[in-house]
């Protein structure tokens, strides 16, 4: 197994050995694993990109409410604000990234077609950050694919070392993982080294350790959709810090191990069960009642 990797350390070694970026190793790994040609894999990723792009474009236009009617028109609002950037504190890339992330989250809540990248709960962060950045760069489309491959490789490292299921590890495993992936993808798009990519991932992932998965009535809407938008800010911030020369004190592999440990010891009530945290606030319980769910306790 020439291109096999499970940890960031393996991955960095491979990039040094073959003198290629993380995205190339991801392609070669997939080609070796599945036996498909590199061009097939590139085309498959292009298809993934197109579906994500459609979800984004639909999401920023639509103001249809979700099935339960608790989310649905925020992406449009944020996207409109791009016209009046002077009023905003974030720059164009970050505000647009937030709009895109909200768009994907809202499409998901409407049961529209999206790409779970890595999961549906955190599906907004990677397209948000990478698409917004791609529009900023020259030759953005090609760089975008590199970013997506790099992000996927980081996702594999997290899935191997910990989990990407919120039912097992809380929100850190879904949006946290997505933020780490997006940070690495963006760093590679900007020309960062593999080490810098993982530094950005580590900084981003550390900020999301221990995050509870406590959605209202168990719906992937509140707080998930807006958390995706904020996740974009975190990913861009981590990447910016790394490009300014900051390093992560704890290596990425150790952060993943920490995530696993936290996931294991986290109480069941805040692991996608809607039995704790925001889900049992008076607002959360009101929604539960509306849906006919059992109310266990109230804060």
């Amino acid at each position: 197994m020439k291109y096999h990797f499970q940890t960031a350390e393996d991955l960095i070694k491979l990039t040094k050995l073959h003198k290629v970026p993380i995205s190339e190793i991801a392609k070669l790994y997939e080609s070796q694993r599945s036996g498909s040609a590199l061009s097939t894999i590139r085309n498959k990723m292009k298809l993934t990109r197109d579906i994500m792009y459609k979800a984004v474009k639909k999401g920023i236009k639509s103001n249809k409410k979700s099935i339960m009617g608790i989310s649905g028109s925020d992406a449009q609002k944020v996207y409109e604000s791009l016209k009046n950037l002077k009023k905003m504190m974030g720059n164009k890339v970050t505000v647009r990234a937030m709009a895109y992330a909200l768009a994907v989250g809202e499409q998901n809540a409407r049961m529209g077609r999206i790409v779970a990248f890595p999961t549906a709960g955190g599906a907004g962060v990677v397209p948000g950050v990478l698409f917004s950045a791609a529009e900023h760069f020259k030759a953005g489309k090609r760089k975008l694919l590199r970013g997506m491959f790099c992000a996927s490789a980081v996702g594999i490292v997290i899935a191997e070392g910990s989990t990407i299921s919120a039912a097992k590890g809380g929100c850190q495993a879904e949006i946290g993982a997505a933020v780490a992936m997006a940070a690495a993808g963006l760093t590679e798009m900007r020309g960062g080294t593999p080490e810098q990519c993982f530094d950005a991932s580590a900084i981003a992932f550390k900020s999301y350790l221990g995050l509870a998965c406590d959605p209202l009535a168990g719906l992937v809407e509140v707080p998930c959709i807006k958390r995706n938008a904020i996740g974009c800010m975190a990913a861009i911030g981590a990447s910016d810090m790394v490009m300014a020369g900051v390093k992560s004190y704890v290596p990425f592999d150790e952060v993943v191990r920490a995530a696993k440990d936290i996931g294991r010891t986290m109480p069941r009530t805040i692991k996608e069960t809607a039995l704790g945290g925001l889900a049992i606030t008076p607002t959360g319980n009101r929604l539960k009642k509306k849906l006919g769910l059992r109310i266990t306790r109230e804060l």
Binding site: M45, L47, Q107, G155
Partner: peptide
């Protein structure tokens, strides 16, 4: 060896709202 595919991470393409609760 059971290796994870990059398209398990960059995917699946699905209708929402949850990958584990809907697509899975």
């Amino acid at each position: 060896m059971n290796e994870i595919s990059i398209f398990d991470i960059a995917g699946p393409i699905m209708v929402g709202p949850s990958s584990s609760h809907t697509a899975g």
